[in-house]
């Protein structure tokens, strides 16, 4: 026996919670039915329960395994997810170019190897190549810039 792996335990708990969440929501809201006449709730309930059981097995296993190493990042994932969000929020109202600029300017915060000028240059280069690839070459029906008025 070699200590408790808390990260493994947290992973098990995460899986268990997801399973319980899916199963209970489905059990409350959807018809379960029988195996031969399944309702829409049968698969979510059955797999949710199964997932929860797997989660418990993982928690159980965490008592007898070696703790894992490897850092857990907080800042980098938030910045990267934020850059995707920035794209999602700007693409419809403002158009492709603002969305690419927003996405690039946010994402380059994650690794500060570029100066502010460098970030703007990269954003401009990517914006131009997005225009070339997607609008000029592939002719996707996306507006380059939408002027909200």
């Amino acid at each position: 026996m070699s200590g408790i792996d808390y990260r493994e335990m947290a992973g098990g708990a995460f899986v268990t919670l997801l399973g319980v969440g899916f199963a209970s929501y489905a059990a409350i809201h959807y018809t379960v039915g029988t195996v031969t006449r399944m309702g829409p709730g049968m698969v979510p309930v059955a797999l949710g329960v199964l997932l929860a059981v797997f989660g418990l097995v993982i928690i159980f296993g965490s008592f007898s395994s070696l703790p894992q190493r490897g850092e857990i990042r907080i800042f980098v994932p938030l910045v990267i997810l934020g850059s995707v969000l920035a794209f999602a929020l700007t693409i419809r109202p403002l158009g492709l170019l603002p969305a690419v600029l927003a996405c690039t300017l946010v994402s380059t915060l994650a690794e500060r190897k570029l100066s502010v000028v460098g970030r703007f240059v990269l954003a401009a280069v990517l914006g131009a190549s997005a225009w070339l690839v997607f609008i000029v070459a592939l002719q996707l029906p996306i507006a380059l810039v939408n002027w909200p008025f």
Partner: peptide
Amino acid sequence: HLLYPAILMFICIGAYSVHYSAFDVMAVM
């Protein structure tokens, strides 16, 4: 550090281009 912003851009535009839906980009997030 130059490559990953470009990859992110392609991912976002690619996800968007399937249905022209900003929701799909949120789903990527």
